[in-house]
Design a protein around this nucleic acid. Sequence first.
RNA 1: GCGAAAGUAGCUCAGCUGGUAGAGCGCGACCUUGCCAAGGUCGAGGUCGCGGGUUCGAACCCCGUCUUUCGCUCCA
Length: 498
Amino acid sequence: MAEPKLSDTASTLKDIIGHAKEYGFVFPSSEIYDGLQAVYDYGQNGVELKNNLKSLWWKAMTMLNDNVVGIDAAIFMHPLTWKASGHIDSFNDPMIDNRDSQKRYRADQLLEAKAEMYAVEGDAERGHALLQQMGRLLDAGALAGVRELIISENIACPLSGTTNWTEVRQFNLMFSTQVGAVSDDASTIYLRPETAQGIFVNFLNVQKSGRMKIPFGIAQIGKAFRNEIVARNFIFRMREFEQMEMQFFVRPGTEMDWYERWKETRLRFHKAVGLPAEKLKFHIHDKLAHYANAAVDIEYEFPFGFKEIEGIHSRTDFDLKNHQELSKKKQQYFDNDLDGTGKPFGNYIPYVVETSVGADRLFLAVLCNAYTEETNGEGEERKSRTYLKFHPAVAPVKAAILPLVKKDGLPEKAREIQNLLKFDFNVFYEERDSIGKRYTRQDLIGTPFCIAVDHQTLTDNTVTIRDRDTTLQERVPISELRARIGHAVSMERVFEQL
RNA sequence: GCGAAAGUAGCUCAGCUGGUAGAGCGCGACCUUGCCAAGGUCGAGGUCGCGGGUUCGAACCCCGUCUUUCGCUCCA
């Protein structure tokens, strides 16, 4: 085998992007206006695939676990939410790049280091003045002035030793907008940078109204927004994206057991929707986020390498505790279960184990995995074939109903079959062009079954059903079609390994 | 954000170091056909990413800009 070649992997992703656009899975946003960086739209087939994935996740959480329920919180949240979560403090920094070392620094930290240096050299007065000047510039939002200050102070990059700096830019992770007609500071609100906080602020609402007993989980699917500096790899990192996440509330001290359990359960989910075991792996975080005491990613091997599709975090009581402090509302749970001494565990702020899937990343993983190019035959007979090898349960279209010819009553018979199946499955009817061409078109969008209606159908009510992956056909009675397709796409079959 | 490359029909691409656009496939209608991208006829579709500049004349040269891809960087 030849070397795995950057150009090959690059072209694979390019092929997939091209295929996704040509066959109605993913379009660049606002394409007629040249697109919008790191924003994409889902097309007619993409939305079906994504909905199927979301539906499977939702059911795997809420239907298969009687202690997990769902919510759908608003995208807008009270500004203090982001104070409590740490987003406002951690992600509002002026950044500057050194062009020679290509290293990025926080502009304020460079100046603070310089001020510190003056202090150490005994000129504390000068350092103090520098910090004051910086503070005035930052408060005024005068980023160009900050840059001038860095240059006039002759601050060099520790790596390259040069002062070849870029502009200072404010690094704002969160998108902000105004509530109400008057725009002032008080009316600024943010588009949520993660969906988790919508669950945390509703923790007690759900617990009380649903009479939930710990341990229990709250699941949510929804959009989140991050103002990414750099977007890469198609829909892998977008400014507007969708998360599927579940926060599982547990008694403190039991969190690691649940963490291990969800870790394994979540890995099985990804296998169940068709991702192969050898392309999935755990990546354990050495460096933990401010809110976590354990964290692992489930990574999928994309054409551009192993990358995260889901994170499982033990978030401790970080979020609920901060919300309690800031809101002055107790976020406690009274645990009536008895401990070893026969007394109830009593009041506590629960610990949280989070499972958080990037819906768009799962979509991309499933699409990359399904994309198959095959070459069959030799010499003159040599033919290439491209198809999407989706698990039938996630395929956008479950079956295509194709009359062999558009005469002799075959279209009418085929329409009857369509009417028989359309209430249970997303089916597609087509009579244009040759049957071979229609088969190929279905292969390209990953339809698992093609039902051909031929002259024999009119005499004995049987059809041929063609398998996408093998292209083999089998003759079956029309009366068996629903059970056949139903079995292939059923959630039970997907989750029999969960 | 830095660096590099690319952008011409729905797709893949040609286009002579400047003379106002082409192919294949695809798409639509009709005819012929009928089991794995079939043949024929006719047809639709492009201010060559966008904006300036140079020139008698720009898809082509120059500047800027947008978007995409790749390598770094970033990713609580």
